[in-house]
Design a protein around this nucleic acid. Structure first.
Lengths: 133, 133, 133, 133
DNA sequence: GTGGTCTAGACCACC
DNA sequence: GTGGTCTAGACCACC
């Protein structure tokens, strides 16, 4: 498990961790049931404050991406255990709209946008396939 | 021209204005050369401080979405005058990845994602078409 | 005589006129004694407010670049009639420093800066030579 | 770190801070990784409002001169992390032309201009050398 | 403690 | 009238 942290980014560090873990899960780099490093381990590895990592884990647990089991450790949630579908669908529409707005400012037609998206998705799906257990 | 502002959102108000104007331009609700309300007019209409609106307009000018002519007013930029393509392409890939990651957490297949995107794009393109001058 | 005006630039329009006239004089496109268009003529040609042009001419007269003769017209000053040397030397040092600072942020060595400057100066001197009366 | 602020200058105060920091970095008075005073510290030292300093820091971050790490502080960027070369080269040509135009109005020959520039550059390079770590 | 945002209100340059 | 800047002071998220 690894992902880059940019301390200079306007995105808070804890959010970058949240995004990084979610991406790793989406790509199957982290798989259901797999153990994550403890808060203090990860903080050590990334030279971050352990409060920052703890906050990221709390957010990931709230989003049902991971399960924190007191005294045992932190694990990637089984895919079945992630509901809050409504919230995510709203969020997806939001991201789709952002994408469409940016495309138009770039003077990219909707058709070209769909092609670009298709290509990118194929690429990420392949990365994901390679990690398949 | 109108878009809702949520003062309690974690997204800063000035950023909501930036996003709102960019969306309106992408949807052809605001067209090239069209005049925007003055900083103080818009502030009055939205019951915001003029500084907040001014900050939004400055950001929109930096992104080449609008042209600010001191002493005269603020205008939607002609489509041709918006470069910084490289920066926007990077941004688009970023948004596409976010979308793909969220989809996987929702257990939406890439194929379903493409279908949802297709539908949404059709819908927005239609809204845009209706505003065509 | 011609130079482009960018109404979108943060540089005030009257300042752009001042800069444009000064550049034309430095390049010998405008020569000592030559008549400039009247305030209203130039305003008409450039579709600007005549107040803007008048302000530019006032500034050019203050800097002794032009002579405004009431009832007769406006003329490029003879080279001899431009003192205020002290003020200009201060200004030159200022511009030189800006140039040096920008170069360092660009990671251009002072030696390369001098070479670039040499090349640019040769080019402008040639343009100037072609206009020689 | 120090530079004078002239509250009556037409150059906005926040821009004077931007210019001052950039000059200090070019002169090695501020070195890569070095911590700048916090927004409120600098505001206190200069008896300015913290918003004015914050605006300057935001502009310096946009120009990649400094790194702002939220909640931690503000640091001079490593020299490697400053791209936007194209934009800066355009800006340099601009400044070079201004210099050349001013020189001609002062009736300084191009040759004398190059000599003055050479001398000034030597002087600033020496200041810079003395700060070398 | 760190930077970021926002309101309120004043003042300025430019048109 | 137009946008831009600045102070004063409050409040917020993040470390």
């Amino acid at each position: 498990m690894w992902f880059p942290i940019d301390p200079r980014s306007p995105t808070p560090i804890y959010q970058q961790i949240v995004d990084g873990v979610k991406e790793a899960v989406a790509k199957n780099i982290l798989q259901g049931g797999e153990r994550l490093p403890s808060v203090r381990e990860l903080a050590g590895l990334m030279t971050l404050n352990h409060n920052t990592v703890a906050k990221a884990y709390q957010e990931l647990e709230r989003e049902r991406v991971i399960d924190v089991v007191r005294g045992r450790g932190t694990f990637v949630a089984a895919p079945g255990s992630r509901p809050d579908r409504a919230e995510r669908i709203v969020r997806m529409k939001d991201i789709m709209k952002q994408l469409w707005v940016e495309a138009h400012h770039l003077q990219i037609t909707s058709q070209d946008l769909m092609t670009m998206m298709q290509d990118a998705v194929l690429e990420w799906d392949q990365e994901r396939g390679q990690e398949e257990s």
